[in-house]
Design a protein around this nucleic acid. Structure first.
Lengths: 208, 208
DNA sequence: TTTTATTGATTGATCAGTCAATCAAAAATA
DNA sequence: TATTTTTGATTGACTGATCAATCAATAAAA
């Protein structure tokens, strides 16, 4: 029963957080949504904080697995960059529970060291996934700058979508990020004919 | 006394939110920090929610006034764009209370319509401040896209700085945003000699 | 005297977390 | 196989703490 209940409670937490729009949900709410007693939720997770931490962990796990799948399907470095972007704006990421959870966890990271660690892992993965392919196309220093810029733009656009403050839709957000990459690739890319400053086309490992 | 107390309480709220790292602070904490009784805080603000809303309002007011001042000092459209960027990354924005408040308010916006409205105002102002000057330099459609992209990048970099997940500092964040603008201005800018596609150099009103 | 500022004391509600008790299934024993 | 025992799953009832909000009372100023 344990794995079944744990999953049911984490899913319920996400659902309730979405409905409620905040992390300030009660164990009772979550347990009710999962169809069990509050006492059972405490039995399996020990504390509300742990249940919430498992919830963000599951969000990260899902995102990673989507990313791995998308990267596997892409054939070229440039296509892999597009795949990373597309996954970041996948419809799943905009489920109400997912949006509320991400935003609430950013806030929570100011208090909970463990939550902060998970978000740092997320931020690093995103940057690293972009960096691996950019390094194939650009000198290392340019690749690093652009990876950070693209990651930030993705995060920023996600937040603006979540607030529905952006005058643009999801497809346009993807296009904006692509434009950024295209523009900076065009400028920073060493000309193929140039003798020096040629990028090293070493195979890059990839954090996912 | 009223204006004095209101300001003291709002400042205290920001301070306490920063210390605590979340909006889950008590009226007692805030009142104690302001050196008054909790009852007085209720007397002047009616509810905790209202006090918190006044707090975000004061954050926005401060940011606007900084922006107005910076814009006034800048001479060219390009300089005004830089000014907007620089204000977004001003040290004040990284005071612990300010960081915690912004992040917490993003989360809160999922629940509180009023909070959401303020954040939408912020997002629109930032976009609009960029747009006004971009429109002088670029055709309207390109200007709009780039304004949204730059605003998103600023927000994203701010969050990454707040989490301290970015491998770069504040100056580098500013430089990254500038690079984005430079790159897209270079590409999207109609050649000065070209006959068509010339931008209209109408004077633009500016939302601040 | 009227108005404003201020607080101590209190209330009513909400919750995380605990615990002892029940129930059922599986394992051990006869 | 029939039985007892053990283990895990589950809950209802409870507790202790926390807090937002209220209010009647006091002090001070106008």
């Amino acid at each position: 029963m344990e794995p079944v209940r744990r999953k049911a409670l984490v899913d319920a937490a996400l659902r309730v957080i979405g409905d409620h729009g905040s992390l300030a949900v009660t164990m009772s709410d979550i347990a009710r949504q999962a169809g069990v007693s509050p006492a059972l939720a405490h039995h399996y997770f020990g504390s509300k904080e742990q249940l919430l931490i498992e919830t963000i962990r599951s969000l990260l796990r899902q995102l990673r697995s989507d990313t791995v799948a998308a990267l596997k399907a892409a054939r070229t470095p440039r296509a892999r960059l597009s795949a990373v972007i597309r996954v970041s704006f996948h419809a799943d990421q905009f489920a109400p529970g997912t949006i509320a959870a991400w935003l609430a966890f950013y806030a929570e990271a100011q208090r909970s060291e463990e939550t902060r660690r998970f978000l740092v892992i997320y931020a690093r993965r995103l940057r690293s996934n972009l960096l691996a392919d950019l390094k194939v196309l650009l000198p290392a220093d340019a690749a690093e700058r652009i990876a950070e810029g693209a990651a930030a733009m993705i995060d920023g656009l996600y937040i603006r979508q979540s607030l529905k403050s952006a005058p643009i839709g999801i497809e346009a957000s993807i296009a904006l990020t692509e434009d950024y990459l295209n523009a900076l690739l065009a400028i920073a890319s060493p000309s193929p004919r140039s003798e020096k400053g040629r990028p090293h086309r070493t195979t890059q490992g990839q954090m996912t």
